[in-house]
């Protein structure tokens, strides 16, 4: 028994077993978000991959890696997207260093 099983991604629909109306609403929203719109499907797949890496969801990472490839992206482009997401995440931590500076300044002469 692992907490994450590869086969479980295909079982996502089983979340409709209870309160199916909530899952249906989620699925409609999730699907609509990935349709071609002001952003292309390829751009959305790259955003999806970047977010998937950021939230560290193994199911989403696999799904959006495939989605990127099936929308014609290559590993250079996908890696840039993942670096950007990671850099923002790192920067978000680092900018909190100012809180430390502030705290330091408050108690220091």
């Amino acid at each position: 028994m692992h907490y994450y099983n590869e086969e479980d991604l295909a079982r996502f629909g089983e979340m409709a077993k209870y309160r199916p109306e909530l899952f249906e609403k989620f699925l409609a929203w999730y699907t609509a978000c990935q349709e071609e719109g002001a952003l292309s499907k390829r751009e959305k797949a790259l955003i999806g991959l970047a977010v998937a890496v950021t939230v560290q969801c193994p199911y989403c990472i696999e799904a959006f890696t495939n989605s990127c490839l099936e929308n014609g992206s290559n590993m250079d482009q996908m890696t840039e997207a993942m670096h950007l997401a990671s850099a923002i995440r790192g920067g978000a931590s680092l900018v909190h260093g100012i809180q430390s500076h502030n705290a330091h300044d408050k108690v220091s002469m």
């Binding site: 292309s40 499907k41 390829r42 495939n66 929308n71 014609g72």
Partner: peptide, 17 residues
């Protein structure tokens, strides 16, 4: 054609690339 086990992208989009 895909270099792996995935489907091809939209023809017009990849043609432009």
């Amino acid at each position: 054609n895909p270099v792996g086990a995935f489907l091809p992208p939209a023809q017009s989009a990849i043609e432009a690339d």
